[in-house]
Design a protein around this nucleic acid. Sequence first.
DNA 1: TATCTTAGTGTTAATTTTACACTATAAAAA
DNA 2: TTTTTATAGTGTAAAATTAACACTAAGATA
Lengths: 233, 233
Amino acid sequence: MKQNQKYQYEYERPALVTDCVIFGFDEGELKLLLIEREKEPFKNKWALPGGFVFMNETTEECAKRILMEKAGVKNVFIEQLFTFSDLDRDPRERIISVAYFALVDKKQYEVIAGRDTLNAEWFEISKLPKLAFDHNKIVKAAFQRLKGKVSYQPIGFELLDEKFTLTQLQALYEAILEEPIDKRNFRKKILGMGFLKALEEKEKNVAHKAARFYSFDKKAYKELTQKGIHFEL
Amino acid sequence: MKQNQKYQYEYERPALVTDCVIFGFDEGELKLLLIEREKEPFKNKWALPGGFVFMNETTEECAKRILMEKAGVKNVFIEQLFTFSDLDRDPRERIISVAYFALVDKKQYEVIAGRDTLNAEWFEISKLPKLAFDHNKIVKAAFQRLKGKVSYQPIGFELLDEKFTLTQLQALYEAILEEPIDKRNFRKKILGMGFLKALEEKEKNVAHKAARFYSFDKKAYKELTQKGIHFEL
DNA sequence: TATCTTAGTGTTAATTTTACACTATAAAAA
DNA sequence: TTTTTATAGTGTAAAATTAACACTAAGATA
């Protein structure tokens, strides 16, 4: 705190952490990766992975570090959500949390995740337990943000495998928007956008007509946005 | 920092401030209220009003306090914008800023503002000087947010007098969206929403046909949103 | 009383959205 | 090998929304 004196402020400083809401998608369900707390307060309760912001990192770098250290997740989409600063959000002392949310391809994550020492588990978003701190509130805000954003930014793809079928994509949108979508209209619209690349490959070993795989064509999307064309589902 | 030891973290803490982007609207132009810095760094440069977050207030309460103390603005719409945490955003030391933006009825503000000791001035958003710190970046983010939000949330009214004409409202939307809007289509749409109350009163002392005043009917708007009806311009 | 300036108003064509049902194909079961 | 089961994949028509567009009304001033 010494430096403070330089400009005459001598305030006590709140502690600063980041907490991460990690979304995954699996079996038609939107899921959340939670960590079991090992210490008080809220020992053995489920919580968002989080940790203190160091002096030599931005909050976003901190969130990425936490994601890796506590959840074994790396190289994923993350976005700042909101800063939560209620006075009593932590029973120990004043702690302000800059919350982030991450979208991960759950399948890929499971490969990496073995290394984990912490107890981490996926929960269906609709069946969350009561979480530590104000984390239920943070999750709610994150879900709302995801819901609001998915229709005009191509962030849904971050939750799917690189190759996906249109049925999977539709199921994802239905899970996030919490409402059914007409199959034909959905396909017409999303293919009409022009940023889905149809692959040759099809599903294998399915007990019905095999669906074609598609991938998200980042280059095509970028070109569209540069032309001022924005997608809207 | 003593409490930290309780749970074994002994980190230095970044300082935490809030900065406020204050929007106003006047003469068909979107404007920003800036404060001239009295001290180094950036002495005599224009900056967003900001200040340290105290231990006994949330960041939102802090923003409201700053708004009052530094800009004489109170009881206005404010919303959290983003938390800026670049390592070098302040040359003195590590300072993280939780930015807010406020929408004020400029006319009403000017009545209150006389009391000011700080040098505060309104700038056209399109003619901003180079600001202190990373404040140009913050302003840019705020304007983008306002632009994105104004079409599906009735926040524009916060920038107008309680009574306003449809022409004023349209000019506001045009200033925020930075594109011309068709008069007839605009009126049809906005009146069709059902949350504008036509008043009896009309303009006075104008050298042309006097325009009718309208006001934003909060109650009607609330009822609509509760029915799940959301407006979209 | 003419002029200037902005308020206020409706219709039509184009586009977008919605609603809706059957055939194709692969594996599994009979 | 044939039948069954399950999901993939496809088009059209009606309805709703959006976009484009120009003149009359009213109040103040010259």
